[in-house]
Design a protein around this nucleic acid. Structure first.
Lengths: 137, 137
DNA sequence: CATAATGTACTAATGATAATAATACACTAC
DNA sequence: GTAGTGTATTATTATCATTAGTACATTATG
């Protein structure tokens, strides 16, 4: 598995955020384990045909979020989950995002049980990937 | 209840999107019922001290989403839920947003049951407001 | 019919930001 | 020392949110 990050340049979602999200999901799903090394800034930029600054920006955010640690000279690595924050602000932001989804779902005409089912279904996929074994190179 | 929309100008969330979200949530929670009239573009803009174009933009999006119907000359009204779409693209977008929340929650160190509990808790608040009676003027 | 109120359309200008570009610097591994 | 790594800096371009001002079309009211 050389490269699993795929960007959509024309999207309304900025490229650096697309990278942040995909790396985040990979970590959440266990496809990236603690200590795993992310692609080098220049290498990833080269493969995605984007500017190194854009990748560097994504990595900086990932580091501020606590998902990765960077060591200048050696690389960027998936951080120890125990070191991640989980403070009140994080929880509130999560609640806001949940509210947004519920609002959208209900206004689409979905019933409560439909939304919960959908939520559990997506969660299953995360957990399954987690246990299903890590596809390390 | 003269005005329930509150914006945060300095936010990273655009003002027109803040309006869209708040109106959407109000409809989802039943604080706005079918046929209810939204504030006039110029009036709301005046009260929020923003440009009428910004409000108009929000209303245009709400209409494209199917949440409201607009009649030039009379005003903007909450639309009939039966007329709203719910196509595959909507469901996919919802799934993507759910994935984002799950990713963030798991990476914060939350357990599956914690996230589900949080999700149900927020959902309760939506439903409760819905049944709890409409506070019409 | 006349007037006011409504949503819509258009053009222009400003400020913020995403992204690219080209360097240069600092640290680490071999 | 050399190569590979992340970081910092400055400049430039393009896009977009927002404001601003104006004009138009439709509807409600009297």
């Amino acid at each position: 598995m050389a490269l699993w990050i795929q960007i959509t340049p024309g999207s309304d979602e900025p490229i650096y955020l697309q990278i942040v999200e995909q790396v985040g999901e990979a970590i959440a799903k266990g496809q990236l384990a603690v200590g795993d090394k992310l692609p080098a800034v220049r290498k990833l930029a080269s493969e995605l045909v984007i500017n190194p600054n854009t990748v560097a920006r994504a990595y900086t955010i990932l580091e501020q979020t606590g998902l990765v640690t960077t060591k200048t000279g050696s690389g960027t690595f998936v951080a120890d989950p125990a070191l991640r924050s989980k403070d009140a602000a994080d929880i509130n932001m999560l609640a806001d995002r949940i509210d947004g989804i519920l609002s959208r779902g209900l206004n689409l005409g979905l019933e409560s049980q439909d939304i919960i089912a959908m939520f559990k279904d997506r969660l299953e996929k995360f957990i399954k990937t987690r246990q299903g074994g890590r596809q390390k190179k």
